[in-house]
Amino acid sequence: MRRRDRAARRVRRTVRWVVALAVAALLALVGYGWVRQHPQDNPWAPLDLSQPVGMFTGRKLAALGSDFPGCRALLDRAGVKYTVLPERSEGERCGYADGLRFTADDPRITPFSPANLGTACPVSAALALWQWEVVQPAAERHFRMRVSHIEHLGSYNCRRLYGRSSGDFSQHATADAVDISGFRLADGTRVTLVADWTKAGPRAAFLRDVRDGACGVFATVLSPDYNAAHRDHLHLDQADRGAMSWRACR
């Protein structure tokens, strides 16, 4: 009787193991199929600007700070037209070797105002994807029209954080940041952070949508919700803090 009981227990354990392995294999196959259909959520898949924003898109974009040829190739594959800027060196902590500017005749890129905005390549790549996947869809939802110009306060600025005389340098010191102050719609309407962030209605909702969407493609996004210093702009930067380090969205 005891031998039969022990044999029965062994059979049950074997069956449980077989069932567990079968379930694990099935889940692996399902997961593999899902990842193949959603490469934007695969941490090992190459970045592709034609794909929607995924879980690892922002980290991959920030990592391009150490791969200027790869960043340019990414823009080339997406059909984005740009001009490479001359290298710039200004002191020990300021300057860039990966700056570029979108060309004015590229129909895929929403013009910036003032014109001739130059940024580090990872910022440019993120700005392109942000326009396509976030800004223009949000404008269509809230205003039934597109954004004709994106207004900004600049990118490169050799300075420390908040313009202090000491402390860490800003991402602006390497052109790895840009400050967005507002948007001009196709009918000429201006939607700005300083005038519309605290109001009710579609303008404020639009601004929060573009802020929230920026968090998927930039390492740091700071808005008027963060502090008074950002009351009139969105600070967007591509600080590369490593694959598993923190990202800021406020």
Rank of each mutant, 00 (worst) to 15 (best):
R16M: 08
R16K: 05
V19A: 07
A20K: 03
L21A: 12
V23M: 07
A28D: 10
G31D: 04
G33I: 01
V35N: 03
V35T: 12
H38M: 09
P39C: 01
D41E: 08
D41S: 12
N42K: 15
W44M: 14
A45C: 02
A45P: 05
L47C: 02
L49H: 02
S50Y: 03
Q51M: 09
V53I: 11
V53Q: 02
M55Q: 12
L61A: 04
A62I: 05
S66Q: 15
D67Q: 04
R72V: 11
R72Y: 02
A73Q: 08
D76G: 06
A78M: 02
V80Y: 04
Y82I: 01
T83E: 10
T83P: 00
R88A: 12
R88G: 10
E90T: 14
E90D: 08
R93P: 00
G95W: 09
D98W: 03
D98N: 10
G99T: 12
R101C: 06
T103H: 06
D106E: 05
D106H: 14
P107D: 01
R108M: 11
I109Q: 08
P111Q: 06
F112H: 09
S113L: 06
S113A: 12
Q131Y: 15
Q131A: 13
V135R: 15
A138L: 07
A138Q: 12
A139H: 01
E140T: 11
F143D: 03
M145Y: 01
M145P: 07
R146N: 13
S148G: 01
E151N: 13
G154I: 14
S155V: 12
S155L: 08
S155R: 05
Y156K: 13
N157A: 05
N157R: 05
C158Q: 10
R160L: 13
R164L: 14
S166H: 08
S170R: 03
Q171I: 05
A173G: 09
T174M: 14
A175S: 15
V178Q: 15
D179G: 08
S181H: 04
G182T: 07
V191R: 10
V191M: 04
R203Q: 03
R203T: 04
R208V: 00
R211M: 13
R211V: 02
G213E: 15
G213C: 04
G216C: 11
G216H: 02
F218Y: 00
T220W: 07
L222Y: 05
P224S: 03
L234Q: 01
H235N: 12
L236E: 08
D237V: 00
Q238F: 01
A239E: 09
A239W: 15
D240K: 05
R241I: 10
M244V: 14
S245L: 13
W246S: 12
R247M: 04
